[in-house]
Amino acid sequence: MQANYLSGVANSTLLDPDASAWQSGTATTIKLVGTPASLQPTAAIRANWEDRPIGAITEVSIVALHNSEVLAFRLQWDEPNPSADNGDNTRFPDGAAVAFPLVGEPSLVTMGAQDQPISIWSWRAGEQGGKQLVAAGLGTSEIIESSQISTNQVWHDGQYSVVIARTMFGDSNISSAQFRPGQHSRFGLAIWSGRNGERAGIKSFTPAWYDLHLATG
């Protein structure tokens, strides 16, 4: 997939999921699969999910754009019943994340490994802004406070459009993915369906990495 370069487009435009600028990108449809219950990190989670379907969202359409300062991803997927925290314990928020390898060829199924961490940009319904995390194995994700992830979302006609964006480079944190025009990288995706009680390792995801090329001017 190529992240097209839009010269001079405002950062705020890239954060608008309905902006016409997104028409200039190439949408890629990506299939997702549910994480296996048997690989969940604790016996209690496995016991609760071994007979329940994991991965309510099976397909995402993704477009990537950049303006040489900000790299933005717009994820779109069908969701008839969007979910955010409404104060009830049984209700979980929808979520989405884009992951990047930081070192080597980490496995996405295991969220990286101790010597092969992955970088994650995440969005949760109902929360202001996104979070950047680094993970080096199941249950190890840590929030990186120094880096601001911008997110925005709309839901209409049974479909989510979620933008997850960050400045491309300049973050000195070594646990943070860096991007420059012309760069080849890879990405993976995860979606959490709140109505299905999905959170943490209970999600749909891309088991393999997808190529990402950042176009130059």
């Binding site: 604790t42 016996a43 209690a44 496995r46 016991a47 609760n48 104060g87 009830d88 314990n89 049984t90």
Partner: peptide, 14 residues
């Protein structure tokens, strides 16, 4: 010794 499935108590239940 095996973990048993558990339900989430709702806020209304509390």
């Amino acid at each position: 010794g095996d973990s048993q499935p558990g339900l989430m108590p709702s806020t209304t239940d509390f």
